[in-house]
Design a protein around this nucleic acid. Structure first.
Lengths: 174, 174
DNA sequence: ACATTTATGTCAACATAGCTGACATAATTC
DNA sequence: GAATTATGTCAGCTATGTTGACATAAATGT
């Protein structure tokens, strides 16, 4: 059952860089799919308890990472519309997980903070993720971890990367 | 600015394995989020042309990877319900991107194949993903790529990993 | 042979999380 | 005082997931 025209299955499993074969590239895309799914599955279960979804986790996560983040800042990170964010943020505020404080410099802004409860819940959500990553990192070793992070970083466009790294650095946009 | 009770922001950027700090773990989860988004954004644009979504791409991808895959097999890989898959698969069949052949051994099965057009479209969808990965892999180097793949693999549960690796190996379930 | 199980398809109803467009309010800036 | 900005909100649409119920054809078990 060898393909007559298009050579669809040729690459070998070794030689994963330089000019990686189509096979390796497809495998890597699959690994991203499966890996991402693994990483989100534990918090998803916990979120279901409260009638929240993955979007709520993301909001809690980034507010936790950058307390005092503005709504516009969060919109920028998440890359969704404000209407979409509102549907996630409002319940979080109503349920007392997130607080909005009027901005000191600019009083139009609503700066976002986690409440004690919000912080605790976010911890619960991210704990299994951190556990999963810790286990994977321990088994893979420090060099693999560096590679993992480097590739993910390089996978983004220059602009995205810049923004992501700003977020990751925990720096507030000045 | 040392935390008095809960040390929320302590870890330094080096020392990313062994017992990685909370900071590094949260960063890594963020990198997965941003990386996954980057990887899916190009095909998403192309899919929009035809009124398809990411789910259609996934189906096309895995059928392309394992021609002759059964519906049950695809359900297993995607981890969705058959009703959910049907909504994706039917249009693909109707539009002539996927063909279903009655199984030789088991004539209840509908074995899935990409048509020429389906193959071409899947190529178009995955081309920008492969380009993105190729660029990232080239810049990160072979060792980083190995680390990237190793961590993603180890991120899964044993069962998931087993299934994922079966898929990746391109082996049909016997 | 007949009953059961399996592989697949389909109908209906519902939930989540994205989108666009339109409009409102308050605060800031020009 | 006018224009812009940050935020909120209403309404409706789409994509993709879910459950539950039922139908058909083929394979399997007894």
């Amino acid at each position: 059952m060898t393909a007559s025209k298009a050579p669809r299955r040729l690459a070998r499993d070794d030689e994963t860089a330089q000019d990686p074969g189509e096979q390796v590239l497809r495998e890597s895309a699959e690994l991203m799919f499966f890996g991402y799914r693994s990483l989100t599955q534990d918090p998803d279960k916990i979120l279901a308890e409260r009638d929240y979804g993955r979007a709520h986790h993301r909001a809690l996560h980034f507010i936790g990472r950058q307390p005092g983040l503005s709504v516009a800042g969060l919109l920028d990170i998440l890359g969704v519309t404000k209407q979409s964010l509102a549907r996630v943020l409002k319940p979080l505020v109503d349920d007392g997980l997130v607080e909005q404080h009027v901005g000191e410099n600019d009083r139009r802004q609503r700066l976002l903070f986690l409440t004690e409860e919000g912080f605790a819940f976010e911890e619960r959500l991210s704990a299994p993720q951190r556990a999963r990553l810790t286990r994977a990192f321990r088994e893979a070793g420090p060099e693999a971890v560096e590679g993992f992070r480097a590739v993910l970083e390089l996978m983004m466009d220059a602009e995205q990367r810049k923004q992501a790294l700003t977020v990751i650095a925990g720096a507030k946009t000045p």
